[in-house]
Each structure stands twice: as C-alpha cells, then as structure tokens.
Write a protein that binds this DNA or RNA. Structure first.
Lengths: 343, 343
DNA sequence: CATGCGTCTGTGAGCGTTCACAGTAGAGAA
DNA sequence: TTCTCTACTGTGAACGCTCACAGACGCATG
C-alpha cells in the first residue's frame, strides 16, 4: 500500500540529505550549488546525482538569512493606476524584465506605487532590505522615491533618463533625440513642411529630448520652428486627442503630426478623423515607441521603435552589476524607424 | 563629527536589539510582532516604543526559515505575451491583486508562463515552496499547470470558472451567464431582434456561459436561435474584428451584436465601421468586462461590468484562507449592465 | 492552606544554509 | 628529506527568528 502523495506537502530534502546521499559533507554540496569551484569532478558528479535523486531544491530563506541578500528584485512603477491600465508599454517592460530576471533565477516583486500611501509603504519595504535592488519605471522624473532609495543606498536602475543633471543614478534609455530626428527627417522626405508635434511632458528628459530632436531637424532644414505647431501631452491617449484638436485649431494648415508616443498618436488619429482629415493623404502621422498601440491604430502607425527587450535586458544587467558593487552607469540604446501606413 | 549615512547600508537592528532596548526578552518581542497575545499592556507598549526607536523591521528570511512559510504569493499568468500586452484586463487584475495583498503586507511575485519552458520552470519554482500560494489567471482553462499545482498540494485560486466538473479547485468568477442575460435583455428592450453574438472560446466555461445566457434569453423571448448569428473568438481584438466580418457576411440583416469581451468589441466596431454600419443607429453593440477598452472605443461601449476589484479581493481572501488550511471554495460575483453610447 | 488555572515572561533549541577555518593529500622545489 | 603550494574536503559557528517548554505570579476555588 503506497500512501497517496496528493494534497499533503511533505518535508523537503535538505542539503544534509544530499550530502549523506552523495557521501560528502554539507560544505561540498554548498560549493557545488554555488559555482562548483574547488570541487573534484568526482564529488561534483556525486552531488549532482544526489540532487537529482532526492529532488533537492535550495531553501532560499536559509541562504538569504546568512548571505543577507534576498535574491529577489522589485519592479517599481510610480504611475497612477489608470496609466498602467491604459499603456501597453508598461506590460512590455514588465514582461521582458521578468524574463530577463528569470534567466538568473531571480523572482520579480511587483510594486505599484500610484498613491502617496503606497509610495511610503513600498519605500519602507525596500529600504528594509527585502529586495536587493529596484527596477524603476516612472515617466514623471525627478521622482522623490528614486531620490530616497538612492540615499538609502539601494541599488537602482531607472528606465528613461532622470531629470537632475549630475545625479549618480543608473538608467537605461532609448536615444530619444535621435529617434525624433529620424522621424522628422522621414516626414520631410515625404514633402511635408508644416510638421506639428505633440510632445511628451516637458518636465521629463524624454519629452524634452524628443522635442529637441524635432526642432533640430527643422532648423537644419531651414524651416523656422513655429510654436503654434507645438503642444505637449502626458503620454495618455486622451492628451494626444486633445493635443491634436488644439493643433488643428491653432494651425489648420498642418500637413504632418509627430506624436511623442503611440498611445497619444491613437488619440491624435481619432481627432484627425473627426476633423475629416485623411491619414496619410492629408496629414502624415508619426508615433513613438512601437507599442502594440501602433499596430492597433487605423491606419497602422509609422513610429520609432524603442528596443524594449534590450532596454529590459540592460536594466537587469546594470542592476545586477550594481548589486555586485559596481558603479552606477547610463546606457543609451539606438532606436529604429518603422514605416507603416500613417505616413 | 557624525558619519554620513548616505550610500552605506549598515547592519539593521535585530529582535535582540529591540528586546534589550525595551527591557524584555526576545520571546516577548516576537509575541508583540505576531499579534500581541499573552503580552501585558506595559510590555506591549515598551516593545512598540523600542521598535520605533530602533527602526526595527522583521527579517522575513529568518522568520520564513522557521515557519516554513514564505509570506509571499505568486501571480501566475498562463497566457501568451501578446495577450498580456493587448488586454488591459490583466493589468486591472494584477493591480488590484497587488493591492489586496499589500493590505496583508504580502508581496506579489509575478510569474509569466507564456511558453512551455517557462511553465516548467515556474511550476518547479512553485512546487519547491518558494511561494505559499498562487493566484492563477488563464483564459484557456483545463490548464495543465493548475492540475499539476493542485496535485502538489499548492494552495491555488483561479480567476474564472475552471473546466472540469468536479475538480476541487478554488475559483472566483463573475456571473457570466447572468451578465449575458442582462445584455441580451437590454438589446431586446431596444427593439433589436436580429441579435448576433461573438462568443468567447467555447472550450472555456466563461465562453460557454455567456453564450448560454444569450441563447436562454432569446428562447424565452420566443426568438429562435439562429446559428448564422453566432461566431466565436478568443477574446483578442483581432478575433472580434474577424468575427464581426464573418457575421456581416453570414447575416447581413443583423441589428445588434453582443460581443463577449470589450476588446473583441473594439475589433467588431472597426469591422462595422468599415462596412458602413452606423453604431448605434444601424447596429447596437454590447461588450463584456467594462475594461478601459470600453471607454476608449468609439462610440463608448455599453457593456457588462465585471467587478474586478471585488474579484481580486475575493481571490486573495480565498487563497489566504486556503493557506490557513481551509477547504477550496467557489465564489460567484454579480455583474452590472453599464449603458453607454453603443446601444 | 493547598490546588488549580489563566496570564504573562524568559530560555534554549533549532530552522537550512554559507562562511571561515583547519586540515589532508599530492605535487613540485629546495 | 623537508618544505611550500595548490586543490580539495569537513566542521563548527553563525544568521535572526519562532516555537515549545518551563517557570512565576495573581486570583479564585476547594
């Protein structure tokens, strides 16, 4: 009669059981577990066999207790809920960070800090050392949370360039300025001359840089920058819609709109459609991000691809390096123009 | 001269430091930490003061090592990446589960199991006891992961009704059938008689129940069910678009479409617009979920609200109960008709 | 007065690891 | 030989907490 295994959780094997099974000491098993240096091939193999046989899995709590590391990292989003619900970019980032961490066998703790209370609770949680480091995503920069964590000495990597000039904080970002340049050059190459822009928030470097790229290319082409052709939004769909409406009122003769995010571009497309402007016949529309919103849009958006998977991979790499004592660093990744039907 | 605290992580206070500060023993501090039973008010207060003074935060690893609990739970999503990127419902669920858990001071580990490899890795991680329980979200039911976890005795709560009949697995779901009934009754009340349906996948109870509600109300109203008015999708936007196209081809005289998710309804609206059908003048369109997709749609969608925040709260409640040894249970929550501009 | 009971408190043990250290064996150099 | 060096292995001591137990105290009960 064998007892059914179903339903009950029996006591899992420990490193001791593995050691006994393999005929070696705990220390040797531990060494195998942690890289296998200074272990004879014979012992190595015996231990691995014992691990397989017993089904041993390391007890992370015991390990963490002694190492002082939690072997987990936090993914911190300091955005209001609605933005998280609306913008697929967060999901892409979250998903690829999760996967990048999974490759290192590190779990990701999701931390949503939309409100002040949550921010306080989460800051305390993090500074208490419950995670080894933090991947921070926030569009509004100069984030007080970032500053607080940095002061507490918590390894931190930000997605997107932070506001302060000399702040020694790691970040990974796409080359916003260059991406914007590519898009505006593309619009120029189509013969567009009255190119408007719905920029991102101008209290963020990302928003500033994209606008700067836009102005730079126009100026280089000998086209004066017309302030009536420029409005700014907050990356939400609604703000893109409102922005486009405002542009149509201020500058009805526009023949192109460069919108600083795909989600805002969706809104802009809706506003243009309502105004009876055909895209791309009457007006070319360019987005930024290459999120799923770009493909869902009608017509499909020409946009600037941010290499989200590379961004995530770099964020994780930089964070892990920093946890291992390396200095903060900045990584800028190239973007790519993706031509679709809206230009 | 005080040393700057910046940058360095100093050794945090332990329960020992608190005990010394408060003039009591470790045991007493521990009792205060865990509910304060069998502690005199005086000691209680002394300990709390000492905790505040020292800035003590419990070391979760040490606690977990002895209790055997990890005090963390996993949020498992067994959907392909693209679905996660596209469908805002996942974010709503994820966000509110995170918050519900935060109220219990329990971190949420995000587990994305889109591929077979990931599923295997994550299953091993979970069965190794690294989380105390799992919140499972998957639209395609009869999920092998769920079965495996259940057999391993891992506390588990599923979002949405699972497939098998007698499986003793906890779940929380909205009343799909009743929601569908409400919507179809609403469409009937508007005078619609050729009501089509784009159902969800028919290998899931949710998909089946919504279709059943639709058929039930029609039959009760004396309207024969016309199979040409029924197609099914997979909850993706694209499948809603394709579904509506197919319906228009099969039954051009339809005067309403009940679509089993808002995202699919978005697609359906696009297809109807392309076919020159005005919504709601020519065709009434009803969605399901009340996700942000419903508000983004043009026109704004009449839909059936799923109470996501209550669903999440219940999932967490049921899961925690199960972790504490209670039996699996099912919770069905009521839905609500939300009238907007598409009907 | 003795006994019991409920409330409160301190103490030692132990959770499963890693780490530092000591020790062994064998190879090569003096 | 003898000494040193390297490669490898085992052992005890932590890590910070909870749990079981034992003991102390006050109060009511026999």
């Amino acid at each position: 009669m064998t007892m059914s295994n179903t339903g009950g959780r029996r006591k899992p094997p420990t490193i001791h059981d593995v050691a006994r099974e393999a005929g070696v000491s705990r220390g040797t098993v531990s060494r195998v577990l942690n890289g296998g240096h200074y272990v004879s091939p014979a012992a190595q193999e015996a231990v691995n066999a014992a691990i397989r046989k017993t089904g041993y899995v390391v007890n992370r709590h015991a390990r963490s207790l002694i190492t002082g590391r939690s072997d987990s990292i936090g993914f911190l989003l300091t955005e209001p809920q609605e933005r998280f619900f609306e913008d697929p970019n967060f999901n892409v980032l979250l998903s690829s960070c999760t996967q990048a961490l999974a490759a290192h066998d590190i779990p990701l703790l999701l931390m949503l800090a939309g409100t002040k209370d949550e921010r306080r609770r989460i800051t305390r949680y993090i500074t208490a050392g419950h995670v080894d480091g933090v991947l921070l995503v926030s569009s509004h920069s100069g984030d007080p949370v970032a500053e607080e964590l940095r002061e507490a000495g918590v390894p931190l990597v930000q997605c997107g360039k932070p506001m302060g000039p000399g702040a020694k904080v790691s970040y990974v970002a796409a080359d916003d300025r260059d991406g914007a340049r590519d898009m505006v050059r593309h619009l120029l190459s189509l013969g567009r001359r009255r190119i408007a822009m719905v920029s991102g928030p101008l209290d963020t470097p990302g928003g500033v840089d994209r606008l700067a790229g836009y102005k730079e290319v126009l100026t280089d082409a000998g086209i004066p920058v017309d302030e009536r052709l420029i409005v700014s939004g907050d990356y939400s769909r609604a703000s893109g819609e409102a922005g486009a409406e405002q542009l149509l009122a201020q500058a009805p003769d526009l023949d192109a709109v460069f919108v600083a995010s795909d989600l805002m571009a969706q809104g802009a497309l809706a506003a243009l459609a309502r105004a009876g402007r055909r895209v791309p016949e009457d007006v070319s529309v360019g987005g930024f991000d290459d999120s799923v919103a770009a493909l869902e849009a009608t017509p499909a958006l020409t946009t600037i691809r941010q290499p989200y998977d590379r961004i995530s991979a770099e964020m994780v790499r930089v964070l892990l390096a920093q946890i291992n004592g390396e200095d903060p660093m900045a990584v800028i990744l190239p973007t790519e123009l993706v031509k679709r039907d809206s230009t």
